[in-house]
């Protein structure tokens, strides 16, 4: 079995808001999420805006303090570590940010930006650092003589490459990519994705890849996780989830993806969800999707279902409990366990 780089167990992150007369209200941004990532693997995270994807990534990197749960990095639980204890792990756990215009300090030159991680961790002498920065610039496809320029002299795609070079400076083993391509031009997106894939192949880095572009997530990820209101609804191999989503929410989400072929696009049945995504301050009791789920049953309104194993994936939906096997078939959802079962 392959080595697990990161394992998250029952991770929760609650934010307190509106500390007013009614007392503190709590936003459950990340709620009881568990998963693991193996060496050299990419886990894609999808879900609509505000579902807690970014909060999950930031909590794993300890930008936010986890409320509950464990974050095991190479077997060590870093969830309760102090900043000093975290310092050696900062080299191994890194992040690529969404907005290349905001993630680089505008007052630093490119050399200072990429050299900063080495400065913080006291790696290499200043002259060796400059050489390393130039190597890193070449790795990400920029010219070594860009070292004295400022971020505003570069385009969005080039800036994102500078951000990637900074991330790579410490030879990380796990990178959270927080929508690294959503601020870029479509033509540039492919370049950045290819660069990320090349780096992964060469260095065996694991990614947690957060995005809303479903096609891109399927392309880069080995496995995909679908999130809704802080919960992990479904997780499985990228192709399985993409071709045959099991959870009603995954079905709706994937049916919303544009298909670049008019014929098959017309043939496809779009699942339109009724209503709005509920407020994360007052999530519905039970499964958070029960307000919009066309197949909701009585249990859905009582308790969040545990993840059921179906076809080697995990689905958090009562329709996949043994009890509802028959009902599911009568509801005429696509036959799900047809061959294997």
């Amino acid at each position: 079995m392959e080595e697990k780089v990161l394992e998250v167990k029952n991770l929760c992150k609650f934010f307190e808001v509106n500390r007013g007369f009614q007392g503190a209200q709590v936003v459950q941004a990340v709620n009881d999420i568990s998963f693991d990532i193996k060496k050299g693997e990419t886990l894609g995270l999808v879900g609509e805006s505000g579902c807690g994807k970014s909060s999950l990534g930031r909590t794993i990197l300890r930008i936010y303090e986890p409320t509950k749960g464990q974050i095991l990095f190479q077997g060590e639980d870093i969830a309760g570590f102090s900043r000093r204890q975290m310092l050696p792990y900062r080299q191994k756990l890194q992040m690529i940010f969404q907005d290349p215009y905001a993630s680089l300090n505008p007052r630093f030159t490119v050399g200072e930006i990429i050299g900063e991680p080495m400065d913080i961790h006291n790696i290499l002498t200043p002259s060796q650092r400059e050489k390393r920065v130039q190597e890193l610039l070449e790795t990400v496809g920029l010219k070594p003589d860009h070292i004295r320029r400022y971020p505003h002299e570069f385009s969005g795609g080039q800036r994102q490459r500078i951000g990637i070079a900074r991330t790579l400076a410490l030879n990380p083993e796990f990178i959270v990519c927080d929508e690294p391509i959503s601020a870029l031009d479509v033509s540039i997106q492919a370049q950045v994705i290819n660069l990320l894939e090349k780096i992964q192949k060469e260095r065996g880095i694991s990614y947690l890849f957060i995005a809303h572009d479903l096609g891109m997530v399927k392309h880069i990820s080995h496995r995909i996780g679908v999130m809704y209101l802080g919960h992990m609804m479904e997780m499985g191999m990228a192709n399985d989830v993409y071709k045959k989503p099991l959870h009603p929410y995954s079905k709706a989400l994937l049916s919303a993806e544009p298909i670049p072929d008019p014929k098959s696009a017309r043939a496809r049945k779009r699942i339109l969800l009724e209503g709005e995504i509920p407020s994360p301050i007052h999530p519905p009791k039970g499964c958070p999707f029960n307000t919009r789920c066309p197949y909701a049953v009585a249990e859905c309104f009582n308790q969040m279902p545990a993840a059921f194993r179906v076809d080697g994936r995990q689905v958090a939906c009562y329709l996949y409990s043994p009890k509802y096997l028959r009902k599911r078939e009568s509801l005429n959802i696509e036959p799900l366990l047809s061959k294997e079962a």
Binding site: M95, F97, Q98, I120
Partner: peptide
């Protein structure tokens, strides 16, 4: 709250 400050935090800056 800007991302470059978060980036510095993730890099381990004091």
């Amino acid at each position: 709250e800007q991302e470059f400050a978060l980036a510095a935090l993730v890099l381990g800056a004091s």
